[in-house]
Design a binder for these strands. Structure first.
Lengths: 239, 239
DNA sequence: TAGTGGTCTAGACCACGGT
DNA sequence: CCGTGGTCTAGACCACTAG
C-alpha cells in the first residue's frame, strides 16, 4: 500500500495512488471514492493525511467533496492557475510537478538594428508520460546585454535563473498588456485545441530594478491555465 | 482577535486578517510574517489552524513558505492599471471625458438562498453626441448588506460611491480571474463589433478590508479598452 | 544548536444529508 | 438516526537553515 520508509510523504503517495485510480478508471466519473474513514482503515493513516491527499485532488478538480454525502470523481481537464503573474515554475514546484519545456525556435536576429536572441518555447507539465503544454512563450533578448546566451539549452535551463546567476541581471518587474486572441496553428498543435478557442495573450517587457529592458515577452496561455489577480482598488492612503 | 462564536472558521478569520495585513502593508514585500509558533501564541489556536490559513495565502501567491527559514510576503503589487475598477471613472475624467452608464438589468434575485441585487450596466464615454461603450458590467450585490440598494439610479450614481457614502462599506480589494471569451449578442450591440471578436472577461469578487464580500463582478471589456498592468516579479530578496 | 516549516498521530465536536 | 465531510486540539518527530 503505502511505504513509510519512502521519503515521499504519505499524503503524496496516497494522492498519486488515488489519482492513478481515477485516471485508470477504478473510480469512474460521478462515482464516489471511499469515505475518509474507509480510507483511514484501508491505508492505516490518520484522517489528516487522507484529507491532505484528497484536498490536493480537489484543488486540481479531479474530485469534488460534498458535505454530508461524500467525495465524487469529477473528471475535468486539469486546471492550473497563475496568481498575479508569478512565474509558473514556482507554482508547479509547489504542486510536485516538474516543469517541462520544448524549444521551438532559437536564433539570433536583427530588429531595428539591434541584435536579439529569439527564444520560443512551449512550457508545461508531464502527465502520463505525455507533456501537457500550458504556455507558449516567445522572447526577444538583447544580445549586447547577454553575450553568448544562445549557447544555453533552455529546454532544461530556466531563462530567469541564467539571467540572474550567469549575467547578474535580476528581473524585477514587467510592464504588460493582456489581450484576447484567437488560436493559430501553433497553439492548435501545442494545446490540442481548435482555432476557434479564444486565448489569453500577454505582451510586454521585462525590466531590472533600474529600468533596463531585459526581454520582450509574448506569452499565450493554454485554456488549462487560469489567470488570477489580487489587487487593491486604489482608494487607499499609504501609511 | 479571533472570534470563536463566529460561524466563520478560525482559519478563514486568520487568513483574512493576514491577507488584510499584507495588502495594508503591515508586512511589506520580502518581509517575514510571524512564525507559526508565534502565531499560535498570538491567536491561541493550534498549528493546524495556522497552517491552513497560511497555506491558503501561499496558494494565492501572497506568501511563500521557506523551509527552515520562515514565511515571506511575495506580494506582486500591481502598481498601475488603467482597467482598475474604481479608477474607471477617474481615468475618464482625466481625459476630459464624461462617464456614461446605461442600466440594462436591475432587479432583486435569489441565488443559493441569498438575496442579491443584480445590476447590469454598459459603461462608456460620450463622443460626438454618441455613446462609445467600453465595458459591460454585471454585478450581484447582497441585499442584506445593502438594504434598499435597488432604489438608486445607477445610470447616474456611482455604485462604489453609494457603497461608501450611504452604507459605509468601503471597497478595498478584488480577487479576480481574467478569461478570454467570444462576443455574444449583447456585446455585439453594445460595442458594435461582430461576434467573432475575442474579448476579455473579468470575473471575481470585491471585498472590504475585513474580507467581507461586497459584490460578485462579471466584466467584459470592449476592444477599445486596453488592459495594462505593471507587476513585480516574485523575486524573494535575501536579506 | 535553536528556530523554522513539513509531516503525522489520535483523538474531539460540529453541520450536513439521507434513512 | 447514522455516516459523511468540515473544523480544531495537543501533542510528536523530522528536515532544513542559520549563527
Amino acid at each position: 500500500m503505502l511505504n513509510r520508509k519512502d521519503p515521499v510523504p504519505l499524503y503524496v503517495q496516497l494522492y498519486r495512488k488515488l489519482k492513478q485510480d481515477i485516471i485508470k478508471g477504478v473510480y469512474t466519473n460521478g462515482e464516489m471514492i471511499p469515505s475518509e474513514t474507509q480510507l483511514m482503515k484501508q491505508y492505516n493513516v490518520t484522517r489528516t493525511t487522507i484529507r491532505k491527499a484528497v484536498s490536493t485532488l480537489a484543488q486540481e478538480g479531479l474530485v469534488e467533496t460534498l458535505h454530508g454525502i461524500g467525495t465524487v470523481v469529477s473528471l475535468r481537464e486539469l486546471k492550473y492557475s497563475v496568481w498575479n503573474f508569478s512565474g509558473f515554475t514556482d507554482y508547479l514546484r509547489l504542486h510536485n510537478e516538474t516543469p517541462q519545456s520544448v524549444v521551438l525556435e532559437n536564433y539570433i536576429t536583427h530588429i531595428d538594428g539591434i541584435q536579439y536572441f529569439r527564444l520560443m518555447r512551449g512550457r508545461g507539465v508531464k502527465k502520463d508520460g505525455d507533456i501537457v503544454y500550458l504556455t507558449l512563450d516567445d522572447s526577444l533578448i538583447p544580445v549586447d546585454l547577454f553575450p553568448g546566451i544562445d549557447r544555453y539549452d533552455f529546454s532544461t535551463e530556466s531563462l530567469y535563473d541564467v539571467m540572474k546567476n550567469e549575467y547578474k541581471l535580476i528581473p524585477d518587474h514587467v510592464n504588460i498588456q493582456v489581450i484576447p486572441i484567437m488560436g493559430n496553428d501553433i497553439t492548435e498543435k501545442l494545446f490540442k485545441i481548435d482555432q476557434s478557442t479564444p486565448l489569453l495573450k500577454v505582451e510586454g517587457c521585462l525590466f531590472t530594478e533600474e529600468g533596463i529592458e531585459l526581454e520582450k515577452i509574448k506569452l499565450i496561455y493554454s485554456p488549462n491555465m487560469d489567470f488570477n489577480v489580487i489587487s487593491n482598488i486604489g482608494n487607499r492612503q499609504k501609511r
